[in-house]
């Protein structure tokens, strides 16, 4: 269990050469992972980009979903490893991530719903 009666301070986070080696190994792993994922995204964008695919079909929806999943994967590694949020107290992590994800998730949801409605009004039934 985490004891909260001991004051640790982030200014005191020092480590020796041994621990540094381990941390660097992790950094290099994440570097390779981010580069490979970016390369995959670009290759997908060139081969199956919007220019070459039926935008209304299921194929484009799948590609789009894969793009978003890969992006969230990259974002997770950047935040958790590069920004050390994975090593901070759990409470700090929750305070930062949960309100943000909930709010932006809802914002995207409601804007896409409204956008579909505008498309419907304008282009499908032609009110405007």
């Amino acid at each position: 269990m985490e004891r909260d009666d001991i004051i640790e301070y982030s200014l005191d986070t020092h480590h020796d050469e041994e621990a540094g080696k381990k941390i660097r190994k992790k950094i290099y792993f994440v570097t390779v992972l981010l580069s490979v994922v970016t390369a995959i995204e670009v290759a997908m964008g060139i081969i199956w980009g919007k220019a070459h695919i039926d935008v209304d079909g299921m194929g484009w929806l799948t590609i789009k979903s894969i793009f978003i999943i890969l992006t969230l994967l990259k974002a997770g590694y950047i935040v958790m490893v590069f920004m050390h949020l994975g090593d901070e107290r759990k409470s700090l992590r929750n305070v930062i991530l949960i309100p943000y994800v909930l709010f932006i998730g809802y914002l995207f949801f409601i804007l896409l719903v409204e956008s579909s409605f505008i498309f419907y009004v304008k282009d499908v039934i032609g009110w405007v």
């Binding site: 919007k50 943000y100 709010f103 932006i104 804007l111 409204e114 956008s115 579909s116």
Partner: peptide, 29 residues
Amino acid sequence: ISDALTFGGFLSALAFARHHLEDAWPVTE
């Protein structure tokens, strides 16, 4: 966090605009 909200606003506004202008939206490539 506040800066991320700004960019979140930008990107969600982009999603809103391009979602209902999908047919006219240019292909980036």
